[in-house]
Design a protein around this nucleic acid. Sequence first.
RNA 1: GGGUGUUUAGCUCAGUUGGGAGAGCGACGGCCCUACAAGCCGUAGGUCGCAGGUUCAAGCCCUGCAACACCCACCA
Length: 942
Amino acid sequence: MTGSRPGLPGTRNPPSRMDSHFDPRTIEGPLYEQWEARGGFAPAGEGAPYCIAIPPPNVTGRLHSGHGFQQTLMDALIRYHRMRGRGALWQMGTDHAAIATQMLVERQLAAQGVHPEDIGREAFVARVWEWYDRHDGEIAGQMRRMGASVDWDRYRFTMDEGFQAAVREVFVRLFDDGLIYKKKRLVNWDPVLGTAVSDLEVESEEEDGHLWHIRYPLLGDVRTAAGADHLVVATTRPETLLGDTGVAVHPDDERYRGLVGAHVLLPLVGRELPIVADAHVDPEFGTGCLKITPAHDFNDYEVGQRHGLAILNVFDAGATVNDEAPEPYRGLDRFAARDGVVADLEGLGLLESVEPHRHAVPRGDRSNAVLEPWLTDQWWVDIAPLAAPAIAAVEDGRIRFVPKQFENVYFAWMRDVRDWCISRQQWSGHRIPAWYDPDGNVHVGRDEDEARRRAGLDPDVPLTQDPDALDTWFSSALWTFTTLGWPERTPDLARFHPTDVLVTGYDIIFFWVARMIMMTLRFMDEVPFRTVYIHGLVRDADGAKMSKTRGNGLDPLDIVDGIALPDLVAKRTVDLPQPQMAERIEATTRRDFPDGIPAYGADALRFTYCAMASPGRDVNFDLSRVEGYRNFCNKLWNATKFVLMNLGDAGPGDGPVRLSAADCWIRSRTREMLEAVDRAVDTYRFDLYANAIYDFAWHEYCDWYLELTKPVLWDESTDPASARGARRTLLEVLDVLLRAAHPIMPYITDTLWREQAAATGGDAGTVMLARFPQAEDLDHDPEATAAIEWLKTVVVGVRTIRSEMGIPPRTAITMLLQGGDDIDRTRLDATETLLRRLAGIETVDWLDAQTEPPPAAVHVVGELKVLVPLKGLIDVEQERTRLTREIGKSTGELGRVQGKLANENFVAKAPEHIVAAERGKAADLDARLATLRAQLERLDAL
RNA sequence: GGGUGUUUAGCUCAGUUGGGAGAGCGACGGCCCUACAAGCCGUAGGUCGCAGGUUCAAGCCCUGCAACACCCACCA
C-alpha cells in the first residue's frame, strides 16, 4: 500500500490535536503555494504524456461559475492522470477577446470624453495592452484559489509574440492556397460597434413588430387579376423601401400573371421598379408581392442577383440614411427613417394597413444592436475545403464527442457551413497582414517587407496596411498547437500534441471546437484532441442562465471564501448593462442569501461541481449542495482525526497482523469503490466518481467500519494482532480514500494525507504526487463481505425495533436468537462483540427451536429470528401494529413473486438463475410470514 | 420548418447488457453515545409525462402524443 513516488517534502508538522471542525481557509491557503513552488504542476516522469489545453478565458474578465465548473473537471482529470504516472500537462493561457476588449476600452475612453479617433490607433492599442496587463493577474488568482494545477510556466496569451507569428503564418498560407479571399458581399453589420460580424455572432430572437402593407402603383396600362392599379407589398422594415430596386411575385401566382416584366413606381422615391418572377416568393404570405432590397436583406440579395437588379445601399456604417435616398430622409437614423417613411406613406394614402407581427430580429451577441445586412468588402475563409477533413475526423472516430449526441450537432453545422467572415473593423486584435499599394492592389505577407518582396515592389512604393483586425476566434482556432510552440517544431509540440481531451461547453462547439479541428488538421495534419467532452452550462438554482444582466451570477471565490450580503449586493449591481434592474436584483439577492455566503472552501465547491456534472445536462447550481459537501469535507476531517487518535503512540505497530471479517469487508468494499472510480473517470462520469467517493467514505467507512473498530480498539482484552489488523486497515483504507479523492478535493486530502503519512512515520511529501490507488492492491473477500452484510441486517433490525418501540438508545437490551442455521451461528460467533456494541445489546442468547420464546418484538433475517423481549420495554399494541404492517408488506411482495412463478412462460423462458432467485425469494417470504404471523398470535394470546 | 435533450419522491437529480425503484437536500420521530450536532439512529413519501407495442419480464427497447428547454434555418 506504499508506492508513492518521491515527491515534495512535507513541511507541516502534525498538530498534536485536530479541531472538531475543519476550517477551509486555514488549510487551503498555504498548500497551493507549496505545490506551485516545488514545480508540482509541470509534467514529470517518463510516463505517457497526457495533455489538456485549457479553453482560454478572456483575459479581461473575472471567472464565473461556468469557468469554475469547467476547470474543476479539467483539474480532476489532470490530477488523476498525473497520479497515475502520466506526464500530465494542463496548458494554461488566456484569450485577448478582441471585440470585448475594444468595447471596454472604448467605454473607458468615453468616460473621459475621448473618442478612439482622437488618440489614434497606436495609442488605442497601447491602452488595450494596458488593459490586458491590468487584468491578467485576476484570473490567475482565482484559479490558484480553486486549486487548478495548470503549468504556469507555459502560460500563453493569444496575442503574445508567438501567437502573432502563428496567426500571420496561417493567414499567409491560407491566402496562398486560395482559402482566404477578400470580397464585397452582404455581411451582418453591427452599426453600434461599426464592424462586420460572423453568422455565429448573430442572435435572432422573436420580437413584437408590425407588418406594413404598402401600395406600389403599377406603371402603364396593366392591372392585377383583381383589377387593381397597384401592388401591395408587406414588409416589417418599411425604411428599406428607400433601397428597393424591384418587386417579386411567384411565377405561378395567377393574381399577378402578366405583370412580370411590367413596372411599379416606388413611392416617396419615384424610382421605376421592375416586377420579376421568383420562386423564393411565398404566395401564401401577405399579398404574395415581395419588395426587393438587395443591399439590405440576404434573401433579396439572392433574388436581385438572379434577376440582375441594381444594388442600392441607402445606409452608412452607423445605419443612418445616406445620400442615395431622397433628401428628406438623409441623415436620419434607421428607426427615425422608418417613422418618417410610414408617416409619409400614410399621408399619400399608400399605407393600406398595419398589423402586429411577431418576427425574428437579428441582434449582435456583444452589442445587442439590431444588425443590418450591409454591403462591404471583407476578408473570408473558404470553409468547404477545411470542413471536409474535419467531418471525416469525427466520422472515422479519430475524434469522439462525449456525450456522443453532440457529434450530430457538429455534423449538422459542418455539412452546411458557410464561408467565415474573419475581418473586423476594429483596432483591438490581430491586424490583418495585408498591404495596399497606391493603386489599391492587395499584397499579403508575414510582414510588410515580405509582402513587398513577394509582390516585387520597390522599397519606395508606399504601402498601407489593411486597417482591419481578425475575428478573435481566428487565433483561438490555433490554440492546441500554437500554445505548444508552433510554427516552431518544439519538443513540447512533438510530445503533447494531439492533446488528449478538450473540455468545453456546447455553446462554443461551432465558434471554437469546429474551427480548431479544421485549422489543426490543415496545419498539423493531425487532430487537435482525441476526445471532446461537452459539459452543460451552469445555471442558478431556479434554472435561469447566470448573467450579469440578471444579476444572478456567482463568483466561485465568493463561495470558496464567503461574502457578506452587502458586498454581494454591491457586486451584483455594479456596472449593470441595464441599471434599472438593480432594485430587483438586490431584492432577490437579499431573499436568496439573507446571511450572505459562508466560506465553504474550494474542496466543497469542486466536489459540488463534479457531483453535478451529469452528461448532457445543464447544472442548476444550488448552494445547499455545496453545504452538504462542505459537511462531507468535515466528515473526512473527523474520520482522520479518529484514526490518528486511535493509533496510540505506537502507530500501527509491528508484529503479526490478524484481519477480522470487518477488516476484510472494508478492504473488499474499498476495492469495489476504486473500480467504480476508474470506470467513472474512463467514461467522464464525474458525478459517479464523486458519488462513489462520498458513499464509500461516509456510509461504509465512517458509518460502519469506524464503528466496527471501536469494540476491537477499545477492549483491552483484544489480542494485539487483531488490534494491529484494525489499525492497519483504518490507516490503509484512509490512505487509499484520500488518494482516490484527491483529484476532486485536493486541499483537504493533501492536508489529511500528510497527517496520516506522518503518523506512520513516513515523510511522503504531497498526495498530489503520490500514486493513484489501484483496485488490485486490495483483496476481494466474499465471505467476509457476506458476514458483515449479515451483521448489518441484524443491527438495523434491532435498531428499528428500538426506534419504533421507543426504547432509548442507552437502554441496554437482551437479544434472543432462534432458528437459523450453522452459518448464522458462525457469523454470530465472529461478530458478537460488534453486534452488542452497534445495537446496544447487553446479552445474546440462543433459543433452541422447541423453546417457546417470551413475548418479544421480532425481526426476521432469512431463517433466523431476532427477538427483543418485551419485559416492560415494549408496548404490545405498538408491536402488534408494527407486525401487522410488516406482514402486509411481505404479503404483497409474496403475491407478486408467486404471480410470477405461477406464470408458465416465466418459468419456461426466463433464465434459470432468475427463476431460482424468485423461488428462493418466495421461500424466504413464506418463512418470514409464518414467523411474523406466529408472533402476532402470541401477542394476541397475551 | 429541421434537429437535440428533458420528463423518476416535496425540490435537485442518479438509475450501465431489460430481471426485486435509489441518493442528496427537505419533512417527521428519537438521540449532546469519549471522530464529527457541519453529527448519530430510525421513519414516511413515487401510476418512473400520457397512450399503445415488443417481451416470460419494461423506468430502460419500439411507435405515437403532450409539456418544457435548447440548437440550426427562417416567410418579407
